[in-house]
Design a protein around this nucleic acid. Sequence first.
DNA 1: CTACGCTTTTGCAGCGCTGCAAAGCAAAGC
DNA 2: GCTTTGCTTTGCAGCGCTGCAAAAGCGTAG
Lengths: 343, 343
Amino acid sequence: MRREVTLRDVAELAGVSSRTVSNVVNGYANVTDHTRERVQRAVEQLGYRPNVLARNLAQGRSGQIAVVVPYLDTPYFSELLQSVIRAARVRGYNVLIDQTDGDPEHERAFIAHGSRRLLFDGVIFSPLGLDQQALTDRDPTLPLVILGERSSDGSFDHIGIDDVAASREATEHLLALGRQRVAAIGDQPYATGEAAQRRTQGFREAHAARGLTPHEELIISTPRFNRPDGARAMAHLLDLPEPPDAVFCYSDLVALGAIRTIVSRGLRVPEDVAVIGYDDIEDGRFSNPTVTTISPDKEMIATTAVERLLLRIGSATPPDGLEVRAPHRLIIRESTTGRVSQQ
Amino acid sequence: MRREVTLRDVAELAGVSSRTVSNVVNGYANVTDHTRERVQRAVEQLGYRPNVLARNLAQGRSGQIAVVVPYLDTPYFSELLQSVIRAARVRGYNVLIDQTDGDPEHERAFIAHGSRRLLFDGVIFSPLGLDQQALTDRDPTLPLVILGERSSDGSFDHIGIDDVAASREATEHLLALGRQRVAAIGDQPYATGEAAQRRTQGFREAHAARGLTPHEELIISTPRFNRPDGARAMAHLLDLPEPPDAVFCYSDLVALGAIRTIVSRGLRVPEDVAVIGYDDIEDGRFSNPTVTTISPDKEMIATTAVERLLLRIGSATPPDGLEVRAPHRLIIRESTTGRVSQQ
DNA sequence: CTACGCTTTTGCAGCGCTGCAAAGCAAAGC
DNA sequence: GCTTTGCTTTGCAGCGCTGCAAAAGCGTAG
């Protein structure tokens, strides 16, 4: 394996200084056409490729951003990631991915004054159980954008939909269908369950708006938002003396798990139990029945996250923490209104 | 933002040379306990963190591997990626992810003598439409492990399951149920569709083993292996004068799309049409009905891929290209045998 | 007491690039 | 003709680390 071609090699061949070659390669202004051509010819002739590592060191930046998610195989995250990667690539950034498996310790470590710093210029973070302490302890020089979960304290940007409003709409949809006993699956009544709690709040508000009181025994908490948890929670609900006739699930995966349980007991969705999800993942558009859901604008979330992060990375004085509300909408499918309103 | 602490700073405080500090930090042998302690104390006192960028440059390696997949939001890939990231992290490597969107040009560019080289020490590649030419043109110094698709030419490792055998088993399962008209969805009768063609081959072999001839009009090709394609192909099949009574789908997503179409036409799975998938993604374990499938050992594929790649990265003389056959098994669920054999 | 071999520590160069500031140079102005 | 101006090009230092080989230290043998 022969030595790689360096700037100096090109400079020699073109009869200019290596600095000039650098200028040409980076498209800096103030290079005469004549020089530029000579250099470009030499570059091609030698097949020169800039050494990214050296450039990174000299510039003190890596050209990479890290995206940290709890679970990669959760469709919501992988769909989001897909958009983030595209948005980053367009802007010349590579994406380093890390999954925390929802481990708070791991999450904390990632943004703490850390060893891996410099490997990435900024972080887009979708935390699961991040407490305030972790944010306070974090490396203050690390540009950060947080998705979902918790709101900004001013030192980073936060992007998410209005969980309370969305949850209110979802619940209202079920109540409007005349359902009497509406359950909720996904509450997390502990410090790190902020996002879940906002959904529960919306659930309560929707009831209150109609002068109703939610049935407390129908609010089920789950450690995660996945299919098995949804299936398990639904089984519990169906075993109650008075089972629900509708369920608001805090994610589409939970909804799919719940539907699975309902159907496997010989009951029908939505006739016996109406189900609504959250996230609008592709699975819910092709399941039986298809899943009514809250659809956040993922594309916008991803694009905005990348843009804001690069803005932070690029500016010497970090901009004020922005609180971005991405739009969402209710998408009605079979799991609440049956085959008729198939879309 | 003050300057970062460097090796030299630590060296000064500890009263040793910076090279010794480096030795301590990297855990090299031959450092006396006394010196090590002094240095470690200084490291802690100053909060020293090695600069990854500088290390990379000096060592000429990046400590990163790239994983290239066609689509990140395809559950099969995201489940695989999850395992790859874990395996890589354990070995001290970070994972850079790129998705090609199945674009052959992009795939080619990635392994070609390329600009982004040096950003990663090796590549785990799951191509979709990679032709022989791209492999021939590739940067020969880039350690490479390929998953799925195409077999090794000796210059890289290839890891995948035995597609022909697996497809034979899947088809045989349908035939053994007494189905008369078994369809196949997912063929790709063109140069870059090698993997799909191997599945079609297994499909044919299973028929042949029983002295049957496949109904050619029931072999449907699709550009991708996703839900919409499965749904579309199934619609076409059901519109035939003599629709099939069973379908072998080349991915679980295709199967889920197909099931969706079948059910939405008021037909039943498996009573009217039995469906079998491929990949064993989580979706298929919670769908209605649950999906019978070919389950590749993803964990083993991921771990082996990382191990082989690091072996390649670490050795001066690249090892011979290995052809690894990961195990697979048929998992029978409701979509072929109905509720009874629920697992 | 010197020589030798082994372990530990050091110094230096250099990875390949970019920031900075100075030098060169041609055209314009006096 | 000489200075000024503004654009191009250059040289050098240095990003922070590690590879290499030489130097220093040190215990043991002769």
